[in-house]
Every structure is written in structure tokens, then in C-alpha cells.
Write a protein that binds this DNA or RNA. Structure first.
Lengths: 208, 208, 208, 208
DNA sequence: AATGAATGAGTATTCATTCAT
DNA sequence: AATGAATGAATACTCATTCAT
């Protein structure tokens, strides 16, 4: 889980600069952001990028890992909140807020980036399931909605907003509110299709 | 609206093969799908792609134009349906159904592809606004939701499902249902942000 | 020398249209002129071009053959002119005039276009040698200048002018005059290098 | 004038290899010479070409700039030579010698490559005008010849020789001698056309 | 015979990745 | 450890040439 040996002070600093620059570039330019631009933004040489991360995908994976870990932390902390409905909404708010008006979708695209991403994501999915289960038990969300549904809908507010050219930075909140209203029990109509499997329902009991 | 001269039989066939292959490639690989791959998928030579469409963007524009035109046709036909709420839901169903589990999002990314795309999209946006206005007046959807909101949410069901590896072909219906429930008046909570401008609200009254 | 079988009337007409269009395109755009543009200019289909000439090079060769033949005709007619000096100048004037302000250089570049070009060119070179020999014998040009020199200098006026953006159509006459003055006996300074071989001096007596 | 920062030793070496290879390729194949061929000839990778010069045109511009600058240097040094006629001949000799039997013509084709090429060329043209004016005042060349004429004729010796398959390396001297004899006052015949404008006659007094 | 649709080799350029300094 | 130079695979697009209509 931790790096094999502690990095030298300057190397550690470069690593942070690099991760921040890469996150910004990916957010602005999408996954096509070039390594050269990332290096320039970080103020380091292109070769140094590859010293820290063997491939561009590894760099992306590191960012995604950071994000998922942080998000999972928020989720776990919310697991014993007093109001489970409010806790779920807060979790989704945190998820969307993480990159603000940016599309978080690569969280999901980052499918086969690395073992670490996969296992960490599974853990986060499990946290979501527990948050959803608690909210459902409290009647805060409708009975026919599962953790997998919430996981899939989690990125929608950011995605939706990503098409608005100069969107106000909090516009995603509007669509999160609408979608969350769709998860509430009031006025719920029956759902036409069963939820998908494979989003960590059973905590990978017989995982693969 | 019609082609200047009718294509030769084989050329027309290739054109269809090409459009279908391109739609699939774009859907699977995103806008970076390579022309070479599209040609291979269509079973035609690379040069033939450029004989039909001068640039990759023109090819994309042709697909998008087809889609938007068809969708707008559906919308306009639904404008005088008896039940405006059902009409709106049917429109959204048609929108998502068009490419089934495929991500329709490039419909929006296709920003400045061509004059034709832009004007056609504006017209379609206007149709959505009218469908939404009618539904709202009938109390079928909440008062604080606009046409722009529906336009933005329109692609969400497909987008959401695009992350599910082997999704059943109708899974999108589940998420459309949830999101549509979020648009209903029952259990609506106040929305934290105003809707965005620029999605054809005013029928381009001062349309440049 | 003549085509194997007489062309149908329309085919013969197309051939002329094509040759004229190609000559113009090559003159305007250089040797990179595209076959498609030539066909369009001739008002015929691209496939028809290749029915008349198997390759683009063959088309070029046909033009060059026409030019060389015409030029040689002029030269042969001038062989028994009364004033050999004036005859040589007239020949060079005709050569440059043929394509007016256009560079005739492909006459030489067309080195390995075809057997026909080669043999015809050899014949034309021989004509030039005879014109030059007569002019020299009459004292109209300096003693140390050969037919090969004149052949090489023949295209220079057009070439020189080709760099002037909007040259007046007769500007080449100025440079032909200067160069021809350099060939005159008056004020001739000794030449530092011998003339090159291989420009038909000996009429390759056993020609092929 | 000097590079912003000194190149690394190996990069500097590659740059020279590249410029030399490109000059040769352009001379042999014309402006259509492919970057791939140039790279191969230089013994470097295709990508390295673009590391040194962002576009093929930039590469060409660099070559042309080198040539023009060197030539202008020679010209300026000859401005106060004792014998203006000999000075002009020496300048033309230097111009043709620069690339020996290579065609210098792209010096002129390089029309709108860059601001630098344009301004440097204007300066060189001005130098030629001054050399010519001095030579004319001394009676070394005929009265009706201008700097523009000499500029246009400057490349002719190389051009003429470029058609001779295995020309001896100094053959151009023969044609320079003939052309220069045409510029002398002795035996000059009146010129039929006025000289062209736009070759820097007035030292760009009202320079745009 | 004439057409223009189809083809694929070729072109300039980009960019992740490797390597010498 | 850091740099940036070098590399070549990949990409959109062009065009001479072939082939079905």
C-alpha cells in the first residue's frame, strides 16, 4: 500500500506537483491531455514524469486512486451518521464536488488501469451499498433502488453539466437534486428493468 | 434536404455501411475512433470514407444530423398528443432508444461541426421546450423544471448505462424512469441552482 | 508514329480537350497538377483520362512530344533561312514563346518519359546543332559556343521569368535578348569550362 | 540572431546533419522531397526532424535563411571593392558556387516562408542593386540592365546545369560567363521589355 | 466507350515512451 | 535523480490508378 522506500524530499514534492498538474490537465483537456503539457504545467521535465509513473495510464491510475480513496473515506465516515438519507445525499454531493463541474466519469472508465484501482473501487462500491441500504431501511429512498443504481447515477450530475459551455460552478447541484428526488419514495413509479449486477453488492463474497 | 443527385446503388450501400460502422465506432471508442478502424469495420477502403465525407468531422456531422432530425421528428409529432406528460416521457424514451445502449452524448459534443448541425439542434431544442412547457402546464412535471434541464438530462440514461460492461439492452429504461420520477411534482424538493440559459428557451427570438 | 487504329470522332475530340487541359494545368500548377483537376478542366471523367493515357506520365509525355515536334518543325524550317543569326534567334524566340511566360523546363525533366520523347528530342537537338553551326559559321555567334550550350540555355528565359509573380507576358523577351547578346562574338570573354557532351552533337550517326 | 540557448552537442550535430540532408534532398527532388526521405538521408528518426523544425516549411526556411545570409555577407563585403565589375562577377560566382551544381532556385520559390526570409531577402536584393549600380557607373555593365535583372539571372547558371545528368562540378562557370558577357556593354542590343519592379530597387524607401 | 466509385500507398505531423547526457 | 533529445507507431487526408456499372 505504501511506496517501497520513502522518496527523497524533492522527488516527493515533484510527485505532488505532477499529480496536481495532471489532474488539472485531464480535467481541462480530457484523457487526451499530453504528457508534455502535464510536465510543462508541473514545471518538471518530461522524462521525470516517466520516472514517477512508468506510463501515462499509471499516472491516471494514481489520480483515480487518490480520488476513490478520498471518496471512500467520506463514505465510511458517513456510515454511522444520524440521518441516513441526508448521509447518502451528502456522499453524492461530496462525490460530485470533488472535481466540481468536471466530469468524474473516468472514475469508471479507469476500468483496467491497475489492480489497485480495481480493489479500491470495489471497496468504495461496498461503502456505497451500505449507505444505500441504510437509507432505504430508513425510508429515505425508494425500496426498489440498489447500491448499483446509485453508483451508476453518481457521476450523472457532473456529466450532464459538462456539456454546458460556461456553467456556473455549482450547477451540478441542480441535477443532483433532481436525480436524488427521483430516488425518493414519494411519487415513485415502478422500475421497468432489474438493476445490474457486478457493482459490489455482496462485497465480492465469491469475488470472481 | 435531399441529395443533389441519387447515388449509384453500390455507393449508396457503402454510404449506409459507413454511417452504421462510424456510429458504432464513435459510440464504442468515442470521438477518437480512427478513420482506418471505421473503414475496416465498414468493410471498405480508407479512401472511400473520404470520398463520401471530406473530413472525419463531416462524417460525424452526418451521423449527428440524422439523429437529431429523426429525434426532432418524433418530438414534433408528439406536440399535440393527448397526454403531455406521457408525450414527454415517450420523447425521452425515443431519444434514448435511438441508439439503445449507445452513448448519445456526442449529440452534444458535436458543438461546431457545421451550420446544419447547429440550426437543426436549435430547432430540436425548441421542440423539447414546447413539450416540456405543455407537460408542466398539465401538472405532469414539476413547476421548477425547464426545457434546458430536460435537454441536459436527456442523454443521462444512456451515459449511465455505458459504464456497465455487458448491460442488458433495455437497462437504460430503468434510469430514465428514475430520472423522470425526479422530474415529477410529487416529492419535489426545491432546486438549489437556477437552470442554465442558451438551450433555445426563447426560440432564438433575437436569433442573430 | 501514327496511332494503331483511328479513334472514333468523339474519342479524338476528347483526346484534344484532354491534352489542352493538361497542358494548361501543368503550366499553372506544375507537375503536381492532379489528374482529377485535369479531367475536370477537360470536362471529361477521370476514368477517361486513363483510357487515353495509361499513366499520368504518359499524358505528360504526349504533351512534351507535341511540343518538341512543333519546335523541331520550326527549327527545320529555319535551317535554310537567309540570315542564320536571325534564324537562331527566331528559333529561340519560338521555343520560349511556345508556352509564353511558362517554364518549359519539363521539356528536359521529361527525361525518361518514353522512348518516343527521347528519340524525338534527339532529333530536335540535332536541328539545334545545325542552326547553331550555321550561325557560328556566319559569325553571328561566338566561336566557342556549341549547340549543347544553346540547348541548355534555351529554357533559361522562361525559367528566369517564372519567379516574377505577375510578370508581363513578354518579359521573357528581355532575358532572351540578354542571353543572346552573351552568345554574340562582340565582347566575348574566354569560357572557363568546355561544353558538355551528350546533347546530340554527332546525331548519333547509328541512332539506335 | 543567435540561438536562444546552446544546443546539446548531439542535438547540434543532428541539426547539421539534418540541414545538410534536407538541402541535398530539396536540391535533388525539389520541394516535394518527403520528410521521411530527408530523415533517412540524415540518418535520424522522422520525429527528430520535427523536434528541430516544427514544420517542413520551417526546415526549408532555415536552409534558405542560411543561404541568403551568407550570400548577402559576401555581397556586402564586395561593396567597396576596387573594381566594381569584377566585384559583381565575383558575387555571382559566389552565388552559384554556394551549392555548386545544385539548383538554387528554391531561394526564389521560398516566397512566403517566414518574415525572416522575406526581410533577409529584401536586404540581399538591396545589396545586389548597389553592386549593380556601382558596376554600371564604372561602365562594367551595360546601361540598360538593373539590379532586378541580375537578381533574376543569378540562378540561371545553376538551373541550366541542373539538367545535365553528370555535369562536371564547375560547368556552371561556363554559363555564368556567357550570361555575364550578355550583361557587358560591348555588343549590347536594345532590350525589348522594361525590367520588372518589386526586387528591392528603392531600398524599400516607402517600405509598406 | 465513358464514368466515377473504390482502393491503398504515401504525406506531414503528433505523442507516448526510451535513452544518452 | 532530472532532463530533454530521439524514436517510430499512429492519424487524417491526398491522389494515381483500377474496376464495376
Amino acid at each position: 500500500m505504501t511506496s517501497p522506500r520513502p522518496l527523497r524530499a524533492d522527488a516527493a514534492r515533484n510527485r505532488e506537483l505532477l499529480l496536481a498538474a495532471a489532474a488539472d490537465e485531464f480535467a481541462e483537456r480530457g484523457l487526451d491531455a499530453s504528457v508534455a503539457d502535464i510536465a510543462r504545467r508541473a514545471g518538471i521535465g518530461k522524462g521525470t514524469v516517466f520516472r514517477h509513473f512508468a506510463t501515462k495510464d499509471d499516472l491516471l491510475a494514481a489520480i483515480v486512486v487518490d480520488r476513490i480513496a478520498a471518496l471512500n473515506g467520506v463514505g465510511e465516515r458517513l456510515l454511522d451518521a444520524a440521518d441516513p438519507g441526508a448521509a447518502l445525499l451528502e456522499f453524492l454531493t461530496a462525490a460530485a464536488h470533488q472535481r466540481q463541474q468536471r466530469d468524474l466519469s473516468f472514475l469508471q472508465e479507469a476500468g483496467d488501469l491497475s489492480e489497485e484501482v480495481t480493489s479500491l473501487r470495489t471497496r468504495m462500491f461496498h461503502t456505497v451499498h451500505r449507505l444505500v441500504d441504510r437509507a432505504r431501511e430508513h425510508g429515505a429512498i425508494r425500496a426498489d433502488v440498489t447500491g448499483a443504481d446509485v453508483i451508476l447515477l453518481m457521476c450523472a450530475p457532473n456529466h450532464v453539466v459538462s456539456y454546458v459551455p460556461d456553467a456556473p460552478p455549482d450547477l451540478w447541484r441542480r441535477y443532483l437534486a433532481i436525480i436524488f428526488d427521483g430516488l425518493r419514495p414519494e411519487g415513485a413509479h415502478p422500475l421497468p428493468q432489474p438493476p445490474p449486477d457486478g457493482y459490489g453488492e455482496r462485497v465480492q463474497s465469491s469475488a470472481r
